[in-house]
Each structure stands twice: as C-alpha cells, then as structure tokens.
C-alpha cells in the first residue's frame, strides 16, 4: 500500500499559481490555505484579494473571496466582519497596498481591533506595476523609481509596519516572519495559525508580516533573493512577535 507523503491542501483550488518562479506568494498561499483547513474554518472563511501581484488570488484560495480596491482590503474586511461576525475574514495584502495607499485603512482596522486577520507580504518593491519603489524598499535599494538607490533624505527610511501597528492599542497579535528556509516556513505557519486562532477566539486584530522576495524585480536568482532577504531585509526588519494577547503572554 502506498503512503501519501504530500497531499495538496483543500484550502487551495486546482488552479496553478501564476506567480514568477521563486516568488514567495505561492508558499505563503499554501501556508494560509493549510491553516484554514487544519483549523476547520475553510468553509466559513471569506478572503479579500488586494491590488498587487496577488490581485487574482481569488483564483487560488478555495473559499469565498472579495476583490478589493487598492489599499482598501481592511475596510472591506471590516464591512464583511461587522455584518457576518461568525465568519472568518482575512485580507491578503502587499506592501504597496497595505503600507502605502492603504495606511489609513490598516491603522484604523487595528485601532478598532477589528476581529480580522491580515496577511501582509513585504518584499520591498512594487511587483505588479514593474519594480517601482515601495515604502518598504531598503535604503540604497535600486528600483525603477529609485534608479540611483533609495535615498532616505529624499523619500525617508523604509516603514516598519509591524512596529508601527504594535504601537496601536487595538492591535492584538502582530508577528513578523520569513519563509527563506524550511525552519522559518514552519515558524511562519505557526504564526498564521495563531493569528487565526486569535480571530476565532474573538480577541481582535491580528497581522502576520512576511519578509518576502521578488527575484525578477530584484534582478536575482530565487536562491540569491532568499539569501539577500535574509542578510538585508531581516537585518532591517527583525523577525519576531510584537504583540500577543495578554493572557497568552506568559
């Protein structure tokens, strides 16, 4: 009798990912989907697709989905959760979406401690529109709109969303993770699980920030991109938990 070594999660559809080779969207999609399945909440989950490279992720997540305007996913999530508090609601957003155009929406969703879960992908660049500078682009990093490297005197230092949101009283669970190696992938999945458990328990706003890569727009091979993320991104964006529900913090 053959043993099943790898079974595709029910949280994903059969559609093949459209992402570039080496893009971490695929693995993060899979982790989220596995958690939804393992927590047995998939059939009551409503997800929100952003504007960005993952704009069509409603094709991949095997649950009800709504596609939102650029940056507005937390507001859309709020609308859904307020009228359907028994459903599980998550938004999936990139750094242009969440950390730039949608800063008001994410800050206020955290501020109200909206009982939703946010999956935040930070790869320091705008992928969809072709490699422009994001608010999270590192100082010195070259993009199409910072062709000489990001100059902090010109456009500031990269924004640290997890730190920023953990200063908002309403934020219940905030953790920054990475998926650059298998050990961190396992850790990342735990964080996602915790975030959804916080929501299931009705404890309020949860967000997991992923240090992610964009090999194509960074001009690197996938493995080099992972190494670069580990050496440069994580140095600036430290991994770890920033907020956890008080009663669990022992």
């Amino acid at each position: 009798m053959s043993k099943v070594v790898f079974e595709k999660t029910k949280g994903l559809t059969n559609k093949e990912f459209s992402y570039c080779p080496g893009c971490t969207h695929g693995i993060i999609h899979r982790l989220v989907a596995e958690v939804l399945e393992e927590l047995d909440i998939l059939d009551r989950t409503i997800g929100i697709s952003p504007v960005g490279c993952s704009v069509t992720n409603y094709e991949f997540f095997n649950c009800d989905m709504q596609q939102a305007a650029h940056g507005r996913a937390p507001a859309v999530a709020t609308g859904i959760k307020r009228v359907r508090p028994d459903n599980i609601v998550f938004s999936y957003q990139g750094d242009g979406d969440l950390a730039s155009i949608g800063t008001a929406e994410i800050v206020h969703a955290a501020h109200r401690s909206e009982n939703i879960t946010v999956i935040f992908i930070n790869n320091g660049i705008y992928g969809m529109t072709g490699g422009q500078m994001a608010p999270t682009t590192l100082v010195g990093q070259k993009t199409t709109t910072s062709p000489y490297g990001r100059d902090e005197k010109h456009c500031g230092k990269p924004i640290k969303i997890s730190e920023l949101l953990s200063a908002v009283p309403g934020a219940t669970f905030i953790e920054r993770v990475s998926v650059h190696n298998p050990a961190h992938v396992r850790k990342a999945k735990k964080a996602i699980k915790k975030a959804f458990e916080v929501q299931i328990a009705g404890k309020g706003f949860s967000l997991v920030e992923f240090i992610s890569t964009c090999p194509v727009n960074w001009g690197m091979k996938p493995q080099d991109a992972l190494n670069w993320a580990e050496e440069n991104m994580i140095a600036y964006y430290p991994l770890g938990n920033f907020r956890t529900p008080e009663e669990d913090d022992k």
Partner: peptide, 26 residues
C-alpha cells in the same frame, strides 16, 4: 443593525462594499 463611523469616506464606502458583498442591506 450595525453602525460604524469609518476613518474616512473612502473607508466607509469600502466597508459598504464588503458588507454588501456579504449579502447585507447596507
């Protein structure tokens, strides 16, 4: 029913989008 003061008109209408998409009269 639900009443919520949003952080902006933009957020408010997108909350309406979400709630309507979830089947509510909004």
């Amino acid at each position: 029913g639900v009443f919520l003061q949003a952080e902006s008109e933009i957020a408010a209408i997108n909350m309406v989008y979400g709630a309507s998409g979830a089947g509510a009269r909004v």
